[in-house]
Nucleic acid binder design. Structure first.
Length: 258
DNA sequence: ATGGCTGAGCTACTCAGA
């Protein structure tokens, strides 16, 4: 079972890239963030032609998340947490895998910059609410997968120049502590669990040749509840899509579970 | 090292991203 997470930075502007990527990588489930469109303009038919069902929580212009799946999913939830700004940032669903029922939670965490504004406060409130909700969920179901664009640099190794980000909304200790808080509910950061000292990134700015210079950061993550750790087959950041024409600024992260 | 790219909405330019 291949589950992939990718912040595509507009599903419509990126549709050809996404289709080519799906043909190459053949995910069973593709979790998309920043689709930047409302439900009625989501390219459901394009994905249907490739054999995928679409579950969409869209929004005009900004944000928006979706799940593309070969298998039918249950209990689609577009109300995972209360969002003060009514932004579409979480879609959850249930996946039946053998005898296990796995809760899939696809997230696009607010960016939070600049730090001395209400945007930063929104990120903190949002994360607190999310953590509270996950805490409740894991008491009922110990099989949880959280994936997406967390907009959090977990540790110094996860960015090319930590000094530049230590007071940024992505790298601040206060925010990194929220990430740890989430993990301490009973999760593993699957990439870091499997790669103790490796430095790889999932995002590179469009400006200033960041991709060419490998000035990136690791902000897209898979968290798997401890109960599912034995099911991990592989985890891989696939940087190839970032090198294509008209790329997203993020690249996919690919999880295989048994 | 900040916003120099990029996309949406719209059709001139702002807002947002990280």
């Amino acid at each position: 079972m291949k589950i992939i997470s990718w912040n595509v930075n507009s599903v419509r502007a990126r549709i050809e890239n996404i289709k080519n990527y799906i043909k190459d990588s053949t995910p069973d489930i593709l979790l998309l963030q920043e689709i930047k469109t409302q439900n009625e303009n989501f390219p459901i038919d394009e994905f249907k032609k490739l054999g995928y069902l679409s579950y969409v929580f869209g929004q005009k212009s900004y944000n928006g998340v979706a799940i593309i799946s070969k298998l039918e999913l249950d209990n689609i939830n577009n109300n995972f947490i209360e969002d003060d700004l009514k932004q579409s940032r979480v879609i959850a669903a249930e996946l039946k895998l053998k005898k296990k029922k796995i809760e899939l939670i696809n997230i696009y965490v607010p960016n939070g910059n600049p730090v001395d504004t209400e945007k930063y406060e929104y990120k903190k409130v949002w994360l607190n609410r999310f953590i509270t909700k996950v805490k409740k969920k894991i008491q009922k179901n110990s099989n949880i997968l959280i994936a997406g664009d967390f907009n959090i640099i977990p540790e110094e190794i996860d960015v090319h120049d930590f000094k530049r980000y230590e007071n940024d909304a992505l790298g601040r200790l206060e925010i990194r502590k929220k990430y740890r808080e989430l993990i301490n509910l009973g999760f593993k950061d699957v990439y870091r669990f499997k790669n103790k000292i490796k430095q790889e990134f999932t995002f590179w700015d469009y400006f200033a040749g960041s991709w060419q210079k490998n000035y990136g950061m690791r902000i897209d993550h898979f968290l798997l509840s401890n109960n599912l750790i034995e099911n991990i087959k592989s985890i891989k950041i696939n940087s190839k899509p970032r090198s294509k024409e008209k790329p997203s600024d993020h690249t996919p992260i690919e999880l295989e579970i048994i």
